Amino acid sequence: MRLDILNRGYSRGTKVLFGVVRLFSGQPLPDAAKIVFYRPDFYGEHAKTFTQQAMRGPSAWSVADRELMAAYVSKVNECTFCIGAHTATAAQASGDESRVAAVLNDLDSAPVEEPLRATLRVLGRLTRSGSVDADAMRRALDAGATPDQLTDALAVAAAFNTTNRLADAFGFEILDPKGFAAGAKYLLKRGYGGRSAAGTAD
């Protein structure tokens, strides 16, 4: 059930901002963006800072890889909104929609590098069970992932296990393909903190 707070729980100035975004983009602001304006001192500002660092901060993983991780975690959680949003963003970032689809359809046979495959397995296991043991981490290291890469991937998983639950609890509106594509373009240009992300996308 969609909570009405996503429609009305904002100041007059914030509502004006939403209208300006819609005027210039031709699309309404997605609920994932709206929610950071609701009680920003409690959730929004912290979430923007953490997610921006996880998804656009310095990392050996590319932006496309991290967006693929977000889509994969969302698929494990069966979060319809976030699957659509981050499948579109990963596809735009990589320029390879079929590769993204292959990972979400069958990770074992998907055409990805072994360090990434092993890391996605760790994220999948963590998302399903809420824990991951040393053996799983060791297999990822043996496959070529570095400790820093695993740390960065776990940050992505933390961000999207939170966002997935918010999307389902608040009943985020599911966009059409055009809406998801517009949101993906925005995320690749501006990032998760609302500032320019030029130079970070692949």
Rank of each mutant, 00 (worst) to 15 (best):
60 A>T: 00
120 L>I: 10
198 A>N: 13
21 V>E: 15
101 A>G: 10
198 A>E: 15
160 F>Q: 07
83 I>D: 04
23 L>T: 14
25 S>Y: 03
56 R>F: 13
15 K>N: 13
120 L>Y: 10
43 Y>C: 10
70 A>C: 13
85 A>S: 12
95 G>H: 07
29 L>V: 05
177 P>E: 02
71 A>P: 07
53 Q>Y: 10
152 D>P: 07
13 G>T: 12
93 A>F: 03
78 E>K: 15
122 V>Q: 00
186 Y>N: 11
176 D>C: 13
150 L>E: 01
71 A>N: 05
110 A>S: 07
119 T>P: 10
71 A>V: 00
99 R>C: 06
75 K>G: 00
179 G>Q: 00
197 A>P: 03
82 C>H: 00
144 G>Q: 04
69 M>H: 03
80 T>Y: 09
197 A>Y: 01
76 V>R: 04
196 S>F: 06
49 T>Q: 15
123 L>T: 01
154 L>W: 10
180 F>C: 05
176 D>Q: 05
168 D>E: 14
197 A>C: 06
104 L>E: 00
67 E>N: 11
201 A>V: 11
156 V>T: 10
13 G>E: 11
72 Y>A: 12
121 R>S: 06
136 A>D: 12
45 E>Q: 15
29 L>A: 13
178 K>R: 15
128 R>Y: 13
147 P>S: 06
42 F>V: 15
40 P>L: 08
16 V>E: 03
73 V>P: 08
171 G>S: 02
158 A>C: 10
58 P>Y: 10
46 H>G: 11
121 R>K: 14
104 L>D: 05
85 A>W: 01
68 L>N: 05
16 V>D: 09
120 L>T: 10
54 A>G: 08
158 A>S: 12
159 A>F: 00
64 A>M: 10
42 F>K: 15
181 A>G: 11
86 H>M: 01
174 I>E: 13
42 F>T: 15
42 F>A: 15
122 V>L: 03
51 T>F: 04
41 D>F: 11
